[in-house]
Design a protein around this nucleic acid. Structure first.
Length: 251
DNA sequence: AAACGTTGCAACCGCTTTTTC
DNA sequence: AGAAAAAGCGGTTGCAACGTT
């Protein structure tokens, strides 16, 4: 189908929209290569996906951007650059295409006019921003983290130990068996915003005071870090949120 | 009223990344 | 492990609507 000369291009009609909407409602999002056939549309998968994501999706917000949204967008752009999908992910109801279009019209214009103002004034020195990016961790071959001792057979064990281990450990240390179970699993959920929750993350990464654990087998650089997690994380917030927000509001 | 310029948005294109086999 | 297919992303284009001369 895709690449065929018969595939329709250009603006979508109401009938096509209805067919696509009905198809997604019936089969759900995804499997876009099947959508044209399922919906009876003479469109390529890319076109169907784009139409759904940018226009037909139910929660899409229409109309102008609010001041708050513009402020957020500006900060996020300063932090992330042209990563429109990431920026849109932080603006509920806005699509990457919306954000990109808005930026390219309103804000770029505003920035360029601002630059003209700046050119009239003496130049100020701009401090470079520190961008925190995920770094690969390295473990030695003999690290217990890579041996069977730390690989669980049952994922439910992780949840179980998170619930059981902490708060019931009257010594408050991480050396008992329950906490070893917990340590087995923290990496499975630490970057998972949806599945995990902040409470579990704090639990799995830290001791009862919210301090990040120091494990003798950790990479040296990592083990030198001791961060008071409880001071930063608020309810329902995850580590990825925290890392982003640090850069976002510290500018 | 007509010609021309500008704007805003939807859609396309090509490339990269991820997933599947 | 590697190839192919699918998904995702950002840059760019096309065009209708609107404003200006």
């Amino acid at each position: 189908m895709e690449g065929s000369l018969l595939v329709r291009k250009g603006a979508w009609g109401k009938v096509e929209d209805d067919l696509l909407r009905a198809c997604v409602q019936q089969y759900g999002e995804g499997k876009w290569h099947l959508v044209p056939a399922r919906a009876g549309l003479n469109r390529c998968r890319k076109s169907c996906r784009l139409r759904w994501l940018n226009y037909l999706k139910p929660n899409i917000k229409r109309g102008g951007f609010t001041e708050d949204e513009i402020d957020m967008m500006t900060r996020l752009h300063r932090l992330l650059g042209n990563r429109w999908s990431l920026i849109a992910g932080r603006l509920p109801g806005r699509t990457p295409n919306d954000v990109k279009n808005y930026w390219n019209t309103y804000i770029r214009r505003r920035v360029s006019s601002h630059k003209e103002d700046i050119n009239a004034k003496p130049k100020e020195i701009v401090k470079p921003h520190l961008v925190i990016k995920p770094q690969p961790l390295t473990f030695s071959r003999t690290s217990p983290w890579l041996t069977k001792r730390f690989i669980s057979e049952d994922q439910s064990k992780a949840k179980e130990c998170s619930i059981q281990a902490h708060g019931q450990n009257d010594k408050g240390d991480n050396t008992d068996n329950k906490c070893n179970n917990c340590r087995d699993h923290w990496w499975e959920t630490v970057m998972d915003d949806k599945g995990g929750n902040a409470e579990n993350d704090k639990c799995c990464l830290g001791d009862k005071d919210g301090k990040l654990m120091k494990d003798p087998n950790w990479n040296e650089e990592l083990s030198s870090l001791t961060i008071d997690a409880g001071d930063f994380l608020i309810e329902d917030q995850c580590w990825s949120d925290f890392l982003l927000d640090v850069n976002l509001w510290d500018s």
